[in-house]
Amino acid sequence: MRDVRKRFKEHEVLTGVSLTLRRHEVVCLIGASGSGKSTLLRCANLLERIDGGDIELFGQSLLDPRVDPDRVRRHIGMVFQSFNLFPHLSVIDNILLGPVHALKRPRADVRAEALELLGRIGLAARAEDYPDRLSGGQQQRVAIVRSLAMHPALLLLDEVTSALDPTLVGEVLDLLTDLARQGTTMLVATHEMGFARDVAHRVAFLESGRVIEEGPAKDVLDHPREAATRTFLERVR
């Protein structure tokens, strides 16, 4: 991502963000509410049209008019703060929707794979349940598995634990930690500083739509160079 800008009407939300993710890397995006984290993530998978700058995936500019945004999104998973599972579909059908209807893969193949993924998060027995029968933590883990079933090259996570009961945060963070260990590339907007310190390779601090400070997790979190970063970290602690 190079110098990405995004305006809503007159209000410039992203004022020139540059950020690079390498394969197998986990980058945590921190910053106050309203600093533009969610907007940046939505720009990264083209859910928002950007007003300036460029975004590249596999070395290909995504602004190229020949690029099909739907194809791009099939390689980029996204998980939301409010889960956004499809309430009219069972857990297994939530997971199958993308692979079957976007990737056109045979249902039986994907189903076996999806059950295996559900097994890994201990929810294989709940495959036929509807999302509203699950706890928040279970729902969020299903949402993560729904993204994984697409075999994304990159996973975008937007404050995925912020809507959870404190007792349920752990199970979701554990899953993310596992994924990081397996080499999943992730861009994670989060307020969980412990997670950022333990799991992220790099941390980027966003303020007023710009990356103010960026570097190895321990450096940024323990010895921030910028006064703004320091103030923010003192507040969340």
Partner: peptide, 9 residues
């Protein structure tokens, strides 16, 4: 958003 982010048209 969830559906489009899965690459569905």
């Amino acid at each position: 958003l969830a559906s489009r982010s899965l690459g569905l048209t």
